[in-house]
């Protein structure tokens, strides 16, 4: 099963490679990873999306906790939480599809952040399903480039299951 794990770490150099080394060294897989400072600049949050059965996920969270620089590990999958990811999609539609691309961007509350004679670059934020949906719809229009931030996640307040 897929899990989204949020890891609070000391904001020091080398921490990212300790975490990624843990995954590669033990053969766990990372689907996405995003890192950024928290409000306290000494602490960063890493949001890691990984897959594995219960046994692997238990090992992953224990192994993460064991790292000296890790302050806290939260398996978001066990909590009510919000997940978001941002993607930038550069489409190069044929003349007759241009209007459709703009319409789709609007439906998905995307923003056109760049355009040229041949291309539009659309910014979309959402959860996994929404992003998958727009990608499917834009694919026939000719996607030229596609980048994504990786997921970030936050627990909903007041409904944490202990």
């Amino acid at each position: 099963m897929r899990h989204t794990i949020s890891v609070l770490v000391e904001n020091k150099f080398g921490v990212l490679s300790r975490i990624s080394g843990l995954f590669s060294g033990r053969g766990y897989n990372i689907e996405s990873l995003s890192v950024g400072e928290t409000i306290d600049p000494q602490i960063s949050t890493m949001t890691i999306v990984t897959t594995g059965d219960d046994w692997i996920i238990e090992q992953i969270t224990k192994q993460l906790n064991k790292l000296v620089d890790v302050i806290k590990v939260i398996d978001m999958t066990e909590l009510d939480h919000v997940e978001r990811e941002m993607v930038l999609i550069k489409v190069a539609p044929r003349q007759e599809d241009k209007a459709e691309v703009l319409r789709l961007a609007e439906i998905f509350r995307g923003r056109i952040v760049d355009s040229s004679q041949k291309t539009y670059t659309i910014e979309i934020t959402g959860d996994e399903k929404k992003i998958a949906a727009i990608v499917e719809l834009l694919r026939p229009m000719g996607i030229k480039e596609f980048v994504r931030t990786g997921k970030i996640a936050i627990a909903r307040e007041g409904v944490k299951k202990a």
């Binding site: 046994w55 238990e58 090992q59 224990k62 192994q63 906790n65 064991k66």
Partner: peptide, 8 residues
């Protein structure tokens, strides 16, 4: 003492 050793 090492939780990762347990159920590994």
């Amino acid at each position: 003492i090492d939780p990762t050793s347990i159920r590994k």
